[in-house]
Amino acid sequence: MKFFFHVGRYFKLLGRVFGRPEKHKMYLRQLFHEIDSLGVNSVWIVIIISVFIGGIMTIQFAYSMSNPIYPNTLVGLGTRDTLILEFSSTMLALIMAGKIGSNITSEIGTMRVTEQIDSLEIMGVNSASYLILPKIVAVVFIFPFLFIISVFFGLLGGLVTGPIAGVISIPDYIDGIQWLFYPYYVTFSLIKSVVFGFIVASVPAYYGYYVHGGALEVGSASTKAVVNTNILILLFDLILTRLLLT
């Protein structure tokens, strides 16, 4: 029963979030602020993680395919497809749920417990829409770009690490990342990125918006938000993979 209560309240909140905004200029200004705060500030961590993961996957693929009957190009192909299909969309979304999701929950939750949200409601402002809608739009907008950045730097990490580790040459690696490339894989992962972006923004916002108590409750809500966001990401990853890759 508690599960259905949360689901019902979540969709009720979304109804308010996507209600007609009072002042479009105010929302637009807030949107650019959220893109900078939630998206642009996440670029460096995405680059760093992707470079290391790309290098690690290249080395692991090289050792798992060390049998001479396997062509060396499979190393680049495996790294490319793993980055595109799973890491740069799903795994990155799980990581961003911890960074972006906890930020959203703590920000909105702090405003709730300090009665700033109540003040907005008294002034006649749709607080749900004003606080949450720009965050959702910003994260949904920025996630596909983070995906592209992650794939690029992941492949770059493999290109640098593979030859340095002596597991593959640069020409073999480049041939591998070009071999049997299916553009639909990119489309599939971009769709996942949009869905995951919506989950990463909306679920933590829900937990922050309905938090009650003080700083301890805000911290607890942030933990619940990240855990449930990760569960939903994995669930929708399974659903989208079944629907779009069959």
Rank of each mutant, 00 (worst) to 15 (best):
I100Y: 02
I122C: 09
I132S: 02
F147Q: 10
L83Y: 01
T58E: 07
Y70L: 11
P163I: 10
S106V: 15
Y130K: 11
G154H: 01
A128G: 04
A165Q: 12
S127M: 08
P144A: 00
F181K: 03
L155A: 02
S106F: 09
Q116A: 13
D81A: 11
G109C: 08
W179K: 12
F143Y: 12
G98E: 07
L146Y: 01
L74K: 12
G166C: 10
T90E: 10
W179C: 00
I108R: 02
A93F: 05
P144E: 01
V139E: 07
V46R: 02
G166P: 04
G109K: 05
S169G: 15
I117K: 01
A138E: 03
L74V: 14
V160F: 08
A165L: 11
T79V: 15
T79H: 05
V46L: 05
Y182P: 00
I174E: 08
L146N: 07
G101C: 05
L131V: 04
L131F: 08
Q60A: 09
E107T: 14
M91R: 06
I59R: 11
Y130T: 07
K135N: 04
S169W: 00
V139R: 05
M91Q: 12
V75P: 05
W179R: 13
V75E: 02
V75F: 03
L155T: 01
E107A: 15
G55L: 06
A97E: 01
S150I: 04
G101H: 04
F145V: 10
L131D: 04
S64C: 00
V137N: 08
I69M: 14
M123A: 13
V140Y: 08
V139W: 03
S119W: 06
F143M: 15
V167C: 08
I174G: 05
I108E: 01
L146M: 13
I53N: 02
Y63A: 09
A165F: 14
L180Y: 13
Q178K: 15
L180G: 11
G157E: 00
P134Y: 09
I142P: 03
P171T: 09
I148A: 15
G78H: 04
P163C: 10
G54C: 04
G98K: 07
I49G: 13
T82D: 09
M91A: 14
L146F: 04
D81S: 13
I148Q: 09
L85H: 11
G109Y: 06
L155V: 10
S119Q: 14
F141M: 11
G54L: 03
L131R: 05
V140N: 06
D81N: 15
L85K: 14
M123C: 10
V125I: 15
S102A: 14
S88K: 02
P163H: 09
S66E: 14
M57C: 11
V167Y: 03
I132M: 09
P144N: 01
D172M: 11
S150V: 06
I177D: 00
L77M: 14
V167T: 08
L83S: 01
S89P: 09
L83G: 00
N67I: 10
P163W: 08
A97L: 04
